[in-house]
């Protein structure tokens, strides 16, 4: 036994033989909180106000406050007629909803009219005409979501017009109707009284 132990030759090592953590180990840096707004620098409290965020400006709200409610609030200025609406519809809606507003299965676009007196049958057809309780919903929805591939692209005039057309084709408005913020509020929907409150819990 010439060599007894290599302990002299062995480099001294500390725990876990870790590489010396010198310099930058390239630990990924965690995100820091970000404060964008100088305005809310007000002294914050623990319970009520955290001093976080800032007041929304009137302009910021107006830019996205697009909803229209049953009482007519939110209806913009402008107007449109059945005749104008027919043009809008033929050009921008008929390809999906059909020449007669009957819907085209392949596009997924539902019928917009028809279906009155079918709700209690075993083939209910729920459309704007037969089912919708409020005309405001029609303006609101077309304005925000239609035409499907260019949502939000219609002017207020165009939405008034195509609404007049759809409601006219559905026999809810006369063909000479012109819609604006005032006349819109007066529309009576056929199924306005067709809705009931949720009886649950307590009923099935």
């Amino acid at each position: 036994q010439t060599e007894t132990s290599a302990s002299d030759a062995a480099a001294a090592r500390t725990v876990a033989a870790l590489p010396e953590p010198v310099g930058n180990l390239e630990e990924p840096m965690p995100p820091s909180p970000v404060v964008e707004d100088a305005e809310s620098d007000a002294a914050p409290g623990l319970d009520a106000s955290f001093g976080i965020g800032r007041p929304a400006t009137k302009e910021e709200i107006a830019a996205i406050d697009i909803d229209v409610m049953p009482d007519g609030s939110g209806l913009p200025e402008g107007s449109g007629t059945y005749a104008e609406g027919e043009t809008v519809y033929v050009e921008q809606c008929a390809s999906c909803h059909g020449d007669n507003l009957e819907g085209i299965k392949e596009t997924g676009a539902p019928a917009l009219i028809g279906g009155r007196d079918t709700l209690a049958t075993d083939k209910p057809l729920k459309t704007v005409e037969s089912y919708w309780p409020h005309a405001s919903t029609l303006f609101d929805y077309i304005h925000r979501a239609m035409p499907l591939h260019a949502p939000g692209s219609l002017s207020a005039d165009e939405v008034y017009a195509v609404s007049a057309y759809i409601l006219g084709r559905g026999g809810i408005l006369p063909e000479d109707a012109e819609l604006n913020a005032q006349s819109f509020k007066e529309i009576e929907m056929p199924n306005a009284d067709g809705f009931v409150e949720d009886p649950r819990p307590g009923a099935m």
Partner: peptide, 8 residues
């Protein structure tokens, strides 16, 4: 608000 998703 009676939106389309809570009426239609």
């Amino acid at each position: 608000f009676m939106t389309r998703e809570e009426t239609s």
